[in-house]
Design a protein around this nucleic acid. Structure first.
Lengths: 334, 334
DNA sequence: GTGAAAGCGCTAACAT
DNA sequence: ATGTTAGCGCTTTCAC
């Protein structure tokens, strides 16, 4: 390729890196030659010398959960807009795997976005020490100076509880993520707080954050005879719905059910799920924006939590044998 | 790091590449030093000189579809077993994007696995010309000497049609993937063939391969008043189910519905979905096996299609006003 | 504006 | 068994 256009390799490099200091007609010649030979710069070599890869790595705990997929997609799109590529790593929920994959990527990327990371604090410390720019999504870790983007679990759960409470619900079960993620802790704390403040009884269960997890937990939940079951996420809520349908437990006549995230399935369940709209696309975009800021070395601005509105659908209704009360908070949606 | 253990960098390289020709106690010293300094070999540099990256790239058209996610996961696991890493690219259904992403990865990977690739034949040709080892999943392209792994659509659809036919169904609608993928063509051809052979009337619709796509196509389908609706995949079938539930169309009393793939959602829909179990994990494993064979330069063994059994659940039943006939083919499952 | 040359962090000969 | 050295394909000074 160097001599296909009869120029030096330095010039080729300049042309393909888009430097303006090249004779235009020579640039054209180079580009044509490149096209002809099918030449593509080797990005490994390029990264080796320039120390920049125009690539950033992202970890997610579960690619099978559409929630992460949507956050991811927004991040990919935003990054692409700035000429960056994203490579994805599915940690499959394993902290060590996640940590190891990150470490492995470090020399090949300009930065790492950790979505709902599960690695331990000391593993996280190790990552920070490599000096790679980091952005965290859905996890707040005090003491770390890492740009962080989250959604406002606290307000959302407050709204959800008020909604159910105003419908007369006084016995609720919260099926939390069995993995002690930051989100799990945050939501559980908010639930406990609301139970105390509003005055309703609350039981907490734990299950795998998947359809099957919710399905399996539903029997235990129904045994506690609540009038409302709140699940950690939509997948679990969906599993609960399925099991309730099998058990003949009417939703929402006998038990109201809520999810979290508002993924596609929430709109399409029977009945459609009342849930919290986690602004997935916005989280993804903000994550990229934070990363871009880190790369260009702007200060690590701590971003405020993104608002997460409650979406009312038909899986929630008045508690059996209760006054209706003032039940219309939030937005009715399909 | 070179002198942290007071050895030459070559020795470090040898130790970390696991060569046995090193003095054990020196190896230990090196490993300890590496641990201490937090040293990790730069895989870009390593790949640059050795020409091998222990990494392979995989493209999928839609990470949001659990189907692809499961194939992927199996491939990742299998590859990891051989010390290979996998990086994922989501082409978001766009052929050009897919092609471009592949080209970009070529200098950084040892091979590429294309899952349900959508790029044109000439784009595929371009990829082949780079000389990168390729494996295709779910697409057969005559004239290309690319190892290919597929599932047996033809037999599966035959079985599905026989099942419905024996239940008395004579008017079927097939909602195909609107994107003309190889799978779409293969399944449509099989449907047409079965309609002709068994003698039932068949209408073909097209829709986006997603829940929403099926949801939207359901109205059109019901307008054709079939007794059975077969969807290209489970996502679409699920959307059909949702819409039918809204429209008050009883499943399976009035219309039977089937999907394809057997992803988690198929077990958990109301009613649970009769579908074709596409052996996702097996496809992923075989893809990796084929890649490994390519890398070690075994001949490109064309693999036989993987069997895809029909799973009978409650979304299919006797056609209205029809004799039951001999309806029990396949396996009843939860 | 362009070419020559140094070197990014490694591995693979080749020496010792 | 270990150290020395030549590049892998690029970008980036530094001359011209």
């Amino acid at each position: 390729m160097a001599r296909e256009a009869s120029v030096s390799i330095a010039t080729v490099s300049r042309v393909l890196s888009g430097e303006k200091t090249v004779n235009p007609e020579m640039a054209v010649r180079v580009r044509e030659a490149a096209e002809k030979v099918g030449y593509r710069p080797n990005s490994a070599a390029r990264g080796l010398v320039s120390g920049t890869f125009r690539t950033i790595g992202v970890t997610v705990p579960d690619l099978g959960n559409q929630y992460f997929q949507e956050v991811l997609r927004a991040a990919v799109l935003a990054a692409k807009g700035d000429g960056y590529r994203i490579v994805v790593m599915d940690s499959m929920g394993d902290a060590d795997e996640e940590h190891e994959a990150c470490l492995q990527q470090v020399p090949n990327v300009d930065g790492l976005i950790l979505i709902s990371p599960r690695m331990t604090v000391s593993q996280l410390e190790g990552l920070v020490e490599t000096g790679v720019p980091l952005v965290m999504v859905n996890r707040v870790e005090p003491g770390f100076d890492i740009p962080t983007v989250t959604s406002d679990n606290h307000t959302a759960i407050g709204e959800l509880c008020r909604h159910l409470f105003s419908y007369g619900h006084r016995n609720m079960v919260f099926i939390n993520n069995s993995y002690p993620s930051w989100q799990a802790r945050a939501r559980e704390a908010a639930m406990v707080e609301n139970a105390a403040r509003l005055g309703f009884s609350l039981e907490i269960l734990r299950a795998e954050p998947s359809i099957e997890g919710g399905y399996l937990a539903a029997d235990e939940a129904v045994y506690l005879s609540p009038t409302a079951v709140l699940a950690f996420n939509d997948l679990m809520a969906y599993g609960v719905l399925t099991r309730f349908s099998e058990l003949g437990v009417g939703v929402p006549e006998r038990v109201s059910v809520t999810g979290f995230d508002d993924i596609e399935i929430a709109r399409h369940s029977v009945p459609p799920l009342t849930t919290v709209l986690s602004p997935k696309a916005q989280l993804g975009r903000l994550a990229w924006r934070a990363m871009r800021a880190s790369l260009s070395d702007k200060g690590n601005a701590e971003v405020a939590p993104v608002a997460a509105p409650v979406i009312l659908r038909r899986s929630t209704g008045p508690a059996p044998d209760a006054d209706e009360g003032n039940a219309e908070l939030g937005v009715r949606a399909r």
